[in-house]
Each structure stands twice: as C-alpha cells, then as structure tokens.
C-alpha cells in the first residue's frame, strides 16, 4: 500500500463554510492572520502545518469553541450556508450541534456507551421516544463502524473501550446530533496504526454525508484522506488547494520546504 496514494478527487464545488479575513488574537498575541478558506460540501479538508501554526486555532473558530477561551478574540467573517456564525443572534450551542467536533485525545464521558451517543440527541431534543433514540444510537454507532464491536455491551462504560474504539465512540457521539460539518483535531495522534487506519477509512465513508475538516501532523494522512489541503505557517494560510496539487506541485516555496521536510 502506497502511503502517498492520493484519493479520488471527485469534489463538489459548493462551499459549505467560508472564512474571510479571519484574525484570532490570544490576548496581545496575533495567532491567526488573514485566513481565507472555503470548506466544500461533502469533502474532506486537511489542515497541515508545523506545531503552533494556527491550524487548530482556526478549526476551533469553525464551531466557536474559541469562545470558551477567555483571552481569545476572533475578527473577520466565517459563514455557514451564507449565515455569519459570529452573528450575535447565533447561539453557539445550536451551531455546535451542526458543526460536530472530535478531539485529539479520545474523551468519552464516564458513562455507558449508550449514554455517550444518546447525550447529544437528548439535550437537543432530536428524538421523541426511547425507540427513536435507540435507533439514532444504533445508526450513529454503525456510521462510526463501532456497532458490531459494542452492540452486546451498550451499558458498559465508554471509558473501558480501547483507545481506537474510544475515538470511534467520540465520532459516533458527534455524528449522533446529525452534524453538517465534522471537525477533527488530530483524531489519530493518540492511536496505534491499526486504529488509525480504521478511523481514516471511517472518515472517507463519512464524506458521503457531510464535510469533514481534519487537522493532522501526518502529511501521509492528509494525502490519504483529504481532497483539499490547507497549509498553515506562522499564523498565515500559505496555500490552499487540491490535495494532489499541494503535495505534487506546490506553488509556494514554504509549502514545498514543509512537505519535503526542510521546515517544520
């Protein structure tokens, strides 16, 4: 299997989210400068770049998780389906149901597997009956390719699963609220290669239903799973385009240096 194999690039050109002139400040530190990105619908977009380049910061702008950081300040415009998500009328709670998130370290709630997945639908009132909720839990676990492994022990604690299973449980939890965009912040960095392969396969399947944005340190991973790639460096978006083009024919010398391993 060729690690640098480039996945099929059949992408729609419809932008699901678009960011224009986004600036992020942490106190007096200007962490993200003039970022313009269009996240396409039903596409996997990868953010790559060296540590501290702002890719996770930008990811957290997309579902307003930066609101929870007291010193963070976001300027510019980020739209989802033409609506500004930083509009004062937008409730970040509703936004986060539409823009799900999976974190670097698997963080299931210390509750049962069932309760982990059912939590989102419950608080958003997405189901009317127990049967409906059961169905949502099952479909979500199936989408996260975890159903067959846990169907007999839905009442077992989610924290008792293996690392890879926990991460897929977190994906199932995010999928359960019916998101339109799924943000993944280095979802495989705490996983072994086999679990990584499973999650990557899963990402490719999820693409048929919604946009996936993934932050990764592994360029091979970006090449394997994404159709679009954005390269961040020192708070700037250096280059953004088709994954194939970025990896084989980058236009910016910094991108080339990073991909070939000269900076990072």
């Amino acid at each position: 299997m060729n690690d640098m194999r480039l996945t099929e690039r059949a992408v729609t050109e419809k932008a699901k989210m678009s960011a224009r002139k986004v600036q992020v400040y942490y106190g007096s530190n200007h962490a993200l400068k003039d970022v313009d990105v269009d996240i396409l619908d039903k596409t996997v977009t990868a953010f790559i770049g060296p540590s501290g380049c702002g890719k996770s910061t930008f990811l957290r702008c997309l579902n307003r998780m930066n609101d929870t950081v007291a010193s963070a300040r976001v300027e510019g415009k980020i739209e989802m389906d033409g609506h500004d998500i930083y509009d004062t009328r937008v409730d970040p709670v509703q936004l986060r149901a539409k823009v799900g998130m999976v974190f670097q370290k698997p963080n299931p709630f210390p509750k049962s597997i069932y309760d982990n997945v059912a939590y989102g639908p419950k608080i958003h009132g997405l189901t009317r009956s127990k049967a409906e909720l059961d169905e949502v839990v099952e479909t979500s676990l199936r989408k996260a390719a975890l159903w067959n492994e846990v169907k007999d022990r839905l009442n077992a604690p989610g924290t008792g699963l293996s690392g890879g299973q926990q991460q897929r449980l977190c994906i199932a939890r995010a999928v359960a609220t019916g998101p339109e965009v799924l943000l993944m912040d280095e979802p495989c960095s705490a996983l072994d290669p086999i679990a990584t392969a499973q999650v990557e396969e899963l990402i490719d399947e999820l693409r048929s239903q919604f946009s996936v944005v993934i932050v990764t340190h592994s360029m091979q991973q970006a090449a394997r799973v994404s159709q679009r790639t954005a390269f961040f460096h020192l708070g700037y978006l250096v280059e953004y385009g088709e994954t194939g083009t970025i990896f084989t024919n980058p236009s910016d010398p910094r991108t080339e240096s990073y991909i070939t391993g000269r900076i990072g």
Binding site: T68, V93, R96, A97, M101, N107, F109, R173
Partner: peptide, 10 residues
C-alpha cells in the same frame, strides 16, 4: 477534556 466533549456536542 470532559468540558470540551460536552460543549463539542452542543
């Protein structure tokens, strides 16, 4: 991470 997880699902 527990707070993040809860906020992350809305």
């Amino acid at each position: 991470s527990i707070r993040d997880a809860a906020l992350g699902v809305g």
